[in-house]
Design a protein around this nucleic acid. Sequence first.
DNA 1: CTCGACTCCTGTTAGC
DNA 2: TGCTAACAGGAGTCGA
Length: 261
Amino acid sequence: MPEMLEIEVYRRAAERVVGRRITQVHAPDGWYLKEGLTAPVLEKVVEGRTVTALRRRGKLLLVDTDEDGPTIGLRFGMTGRLLVDGRAGIEHLEYSSLRDNPEWDRVVFAFEGGGELRIRDPRRLGGVLLDPAEERLGPDALSVTPAQLRDLLATSRAPVKARLMDQSVVAGIGNLLVDEALWRAGIDPARESRTLTANELRRLHKHLRATLVELGERGGSHTGDLQDERRRDGVCPRDGTPLLRRTVGGRTTYSCPKHQV
DNA sequence: CTCGACTCCTGTTAGC
DNA sequence: TGCTAACAGGAGTCGA
């Protein structure tokens, strides 16, 4: 699934459209347009605009257009892929379909002189937003400092996993990345956030960062050391203990009952 | 305000 | 073999 690492791949792939003028918007799936946005409105405000920058905050991809133009927010849900000029930045996503069906195109931005940005999303959990409220997102997970992380977890009674996946707290972390980071840090996902000691917070910050960097280099959220064992009957890759499978923060969670405490 | 439960979506897969 | 039901999770909403 696309978490922040995959969105960053999309962002880099999409940078080639900077400087291009949008001539046509095709939004056949009204459900994919969020916060009251409609296809006619999207067309009206976007057509004729030139793309000036591609930014990312957490899992949100931001397409800036000329000074007085809007910013287009692209969300990819769990199965959304970005195609740039007909090419996919990522060919296959975990949990998505192996097939590649043009019927799954939810929105297309076509450019002057050819080429386009296209979201292809089988399960329709992504969406398009106009001028999204970026400030509602927490700091990007790659930029969060140890002190910020400490403060964000300090008073919360929610499980640390739920807190880390809350995009308004820290932006960019999804289910696979959080399970991997907590497994590496040796912290139980169900631990009440505010009970983490200073030492555990340091460890969490270190491993969260290392997980993002390392998995980014390996090629995505699904390349973690824990990934192959995220299944029923999986065992801890570190100590061979049968993994615990349960729901934490509303999501299927795998953890090692021996070394994650 | 905080947090958990519920809901949305649909292709894939496990199981009868 | 063919069908059904469970499953996957990002994000919004609602109620305690």
